[in-house]
Simulated assay, not measured.
Amino acid sequence: MTPWLTDAALAPVPTEALPIGANGLRFHNGALWVSNFNKGTLLRVPVTTTGAPGPIRQVAGSLPNIDDLSFLTPRSDVVFAAQNGSSSNNGTDRVVVIYPNGTYKPVLTSADGLASPSATAVRGNRLYITDGGVPVPHEPKLQTSRINFPALLAGTAH
């Protein structure tokens, strides 16, 4: 195996309880999209025609414990991302929608039954979420929710 890209933006924060850097990864619209768990960032790395990485661009920040991600549609750069606060006791358990301009808003939280969400997937008008069940009572599960497309595409927050 050969390193394809190394950069401080991908590195973990060694002083964190769980020093996890680059975590979620998706190839989408000619780029690799990467989450950094400790730094709370969503990054976009264009892939050149030769397969080399282009410059890293931070799409969003201030998202502690951002885990895996998925896209609203195959052409859209609107992202669903899990934030797994239970795994490090550093943040909240929630799923956020992240817009291409870097703004984001929570769409599901622990009040909706999330317990250490770690991944999201979209199929049609459904969002699927893996819940690790880290906090007591330790009940891992898969959850689903209907996507309200007009509401998501109408506005941004934060």
Rank of each mutant, 00 (worst) to 15 (best):
I66Q: 00
T92K: 10
V97C: 04
D112S: 11
G30E: 08
A52K: 14
G85H: 03
R94F: 03
D77Q: 04
A52V: 11
N29P: 03
Y128W: 14
N101D: 15
S118A: 15
Y99A: 12
G133K: 00
P135A: 08
H28T: 11
I56L: 11
K39F: 08
N65L: 03
R26L: 09
T103L: 15
W4Y: 01
N38L: 12
L18F: 12
I66M: 00
R26P: 02
P14H: 09
P140K: 06
S116Y: 01
G30I: 06
L10F: 06
G133A: 00
V13L: 14
P106T: 15
D93E: 06
I129S: 01
V78W: 13
G24A: 13
L5Y: 10
T15L: 04
T144S: 13
N84G: 05
S118T: 14
A60W: 01
T50E: 12
I129D: 02
P64G: 01
N101F: 02
L63S: 00
L43Q: 11
G102S: 00
P106Y: 06
A31T: 04
S118E: 13
I98H: 04
S70I: 06
Y128L: 10
L5E: 08
T103E: 15
R44H: 04
K39Y: 03
G85F: 01
D112N: 15
S110P: 13
P135C: 04
L114F: 07
A17Q: 10
V59D: 00
S87I: 11
I20S: 09
I56A: 02
V97S: 01
A9R: 08
P106E: 15
V122P: 03
N90T: 12
A8W: 04
R75N: 14
V13S: 09
N23Y: 14
A17G: 07
T50M: 05
P53W: 10
F80S: 05
G24N: 14
S35M: 04
A60S: 12
T49P: 07
L10R: 09
A111V: 03
G91P: 07
R26N: 07
L72K: 02
P140A: 11
V47T: 02
P12S: 07
L25Q: 11
T109G: 13
G30N: 09
S87C: 03
V97Q: 02
L10G: 09
P74E: 14
F80W: 08
I129N: 00
G102H: 01
F37W: 13
P19Y: 05
T6P: 01
Q83E: 15
Q83A: 09
P106A: 15
P46Q: 10
S87V: 11
A82S: 12
G30W: 07
F80E: 05
G40N: 07
P46E: 11
P64Q: 04
P74S: 15
S88C: 08
R44S: 05
N65S: 06
S116M: 08
F71H: 07
F27P: 00
Y128M: 02
Y128A: 01
T73C: 07
P137N: 00
R146S: 11
S86D: 03
T92F: 07
L32R: 09
S116P: 03
V136A: 05
T73E: 11
L142E: 07
F37Q: 12
Y99D: 07
N125D: 14
V134L: 09
N23M: 08
W4P: 02
